[in-house]
């Protein structure tokens, strides 16, 4: 097992303690609810999509440190990005948290999201990290709800 500090990195602990964009976005025109039945993580993602651009994105809900900080970082990163860029980030993020243990990764292109690379060593926590991202995708696709199951 890897060191616990690689999972609970400072950035993650910080975003857990003071989550960014933790509010309902009043002007949102896209939203979705995400639920992880295994641990009860439950979040709502709100997006104000103007044309193809994410003008504002926020979230609310309850969950573990990994799910909350992942949602917080995701909203910080995606604000101002296009739909296409958001999808590309989702794919990259997904690869970071699910790639096989020990495989080489290009973490440099991930920026802040690289802090989640420790999650892949904890298979039971991958769903915590990816819940916000799945919910964001559902919101963009106007699916209303996402589940990690």
């Amino acid at each position: 097992m890897s060191e616990l500090s690689e999972l609970y990195q400072e950035v993650i602990l910080d975003h857990n303690k003071s989550p960014r964009n933790f509010r309902k976005c009043e002007t949102c025109n896209h939203d979705a609810e995400g639920y992880n039945p295994l641990c009860g993580d439950h979040i709502f993602v709100y997006i104000d999509l103007q044309g193809d651009t994410i003008k504002d994105i926020s979230f609310q809900g309850s969950g573990c440190a990994i799910s909350k900080s992942s949602a917080s970082l995701m909203t910080s990163i995606l604000k101002g990005k296009t739909k296409q860029e958001a999808l590309e980030m989702f794919n990259k993020f997904h690869e970071v948290v699910t790639s096989r243990i020990g495989s080489e990764q290009d973490l440099s292109s991930l920026g802040k999201l690289a802090v989640f690379s420790g999650v892949r060593d904890y298979p039971s926590r991958v769903k915590c990290a990816s819940l916000a991202w799945h919910t964001m995708i559902s919101a963009l696709k106007e699916e209303k709800s996402a589940s990690t199951e």
Partner: peptide, 8 residues
Amino acid sequence: HPHDIGTI
């Protein structure tokens, strides 16, 4: 959250 308790 309990999950964080469990992992630690």
